[in-house]
Amino acid sequence: MTAYRWFPGAQTLTKAEVAVPEPAADEVLVKILAAGMCHSDMLYYDTSFQHTKTKPFIMGHEGAGEIIALGESVPSTYPDFHLNQYVVIHARNPCLLSTCPVCSIDADNLCARYFPCGLGIDGSYAPYMVVHARAIVPVNATKDEIPPPLAAVSTDAVLTSYHAMKDLRAGETVLVMGIGGLGINAVQIAKNVKGAQIVIAADLRDEMLQEALEVGADYAVKPEDLGSLLYNHGLNVDTAYDFVGVGSTFKSVLEHIRPRGTVIIVGLGATCVELPLVPVTRKEVTVKSSLWGTKKELEEVLVILKDKKIRPLIETRHFVHALEAFEDLKNSRLKGRVVMVL
């Protein structure tokens, strides 16, 4: 089969012919129907990112498809799994063991026992993918209710935003910095799922500000206009989400958060950002980080999508155009999430 892999020293995805994998006893073979592309893929092409991989692997950590083969022990361990079942892949790939210090406290998004699928081990940029059965989540909807491209992005682009907003309280005023593949979902989750009173979207691109307004943002401005917006409308930002994660965006959310407000960093646009201690201390600001999402939260996200509470911004391209799509992602030429369909 044709797959798109990471190779050591390569500057972009590498197209390769590899054997169709066979599932081990505790694995399933999934026929991939849609695979989303994420900016996290770029970490493996960033020389400052420290990792231990030396062998090629198939990329892609947003996958949706159908089970077409079950490992010999799967039917007894997961009796609800069956052939042709519509599923998504929780590519965080946690161990889910009761003895795990993070999985045992419902923080399996932090489990580092195994590499994530597509970010260290073979992922979904291929027609077929083997996955440990523990990482499979049934969609429990038809393909008309949740089309495969939408199911694919649920596993990260929606899940990551949903997890970041898990503690958001109804009635808050929220700032979403960065209206991309995740930020556009965050606007809708804050407004339609969490009950935020006011949602402010900030981005440098006029077209994305318009998209934010169309999906429910109350205000949409460029970062340099945030101060005047808050002043003119008498607004105080309770919680701010940085979906970019670079020095300028982090500085902006710190500047505009209210005293004793909360800033949550989601984007990983830079390896580090500066924390100005005096301004932050004067406000007693809480700064938190957020990573991906749990398997249980992924199940909840699928229900939200089935109920049409959010509408992710998706661009679909055929699998054969993966290299071009990857270059567009790398060079910031995309409005939302690009999804390859097979």
Rank of each mutant, 00 (worst) to 15 (best):
V102T: 11
D41V: 04
G9M: 06
C117A: 14
S104Q: 02
S332W: 05
K283T: 02
I67P: 00
D238T: 00
M165H: 08
P101R: 02
H39K: 13
G195M: 12
A64Q: 01
V266R: 12
D26W: 09
V280E: 03
G216R: 07
I89D: 00
V341D: 11
I136M: 06
A16R: 13
A151I: 02
G245H: 07
V130N: 12
I32S: 06
V263L: 10
H82R: 15
V130F: 01
T52L: 14
Y4Q: 11
E299Y: 04
M59D: 04
F319S: 13
K31N: 11
P127T: 06
S104Y: 06
G234S: 02
T294M: 00
N140A: 09
C111M: 07
G123S: 09
D242G: 03
E315A: 07
C103Y: 00
M340N: 02
L313E: 03
L83P: 10
D106L: 00
C100R: 10
Q197V: 00
T14W: 07
T12S: 15
L204D: 11
V174M: 03
N185D: 06
D80T: 14
V285T: 15
L96E: 10
K222C: 01
V285S: 07
S161D: 04
T316A: 02
G183K: 08
E297C: 00
V244F: 05
P223M: 14
T12I: 04
G71R: 12
Y241K: 08
L334W: 07
K53H: 15
G293L: 00
Y125S: 08
W6E: 02
V88E: 09
K222I: 03
K55A: 15
T99P: 04
K53D: 14
M165W: 12
H82W: 10
V338Y: 10
I179Y: 08
P279Y: 05
K296V: 03
A220C: 02
D156A: 01
S98H: 09
M59H: 09
P21I: 11
S289L: 01
L70I: 05
G267N: 05
L97F: 12
I146E: 05
H233F: 13
L43Q: 14
L277T: 07
V137R: 13
H256Y: 14
N232S: 15
N140V: 03
I32T: 11
Q50H: 13
K308A: 05
A10H: 08
Y162T: 06
Y128Q: 07
T14G: 03
V303R: 09
S154P: 04
S332N: 13
V263D: 08
P149A: 01
R169T: 04
R333D: 03
D156S: 05
M37W: 12
V237E: 06
D203P: 10
S228R: 15
L213Q: 11
I304P: 06
G267V: 02
Y86K: 10
G9I: 06
Q188H: 05
A126W: 01
T2C: 02
L33K: 12
T77Y: 00
E17T: 15
A34T: 13
G171H: 09
A196C: 05
D122N: 15
E274F: 03
S228P: 00
A202Y: 13
G269D: 06
A19H: 05
K251L: 14
H90D: 01
V280G: 00
V215R: 15
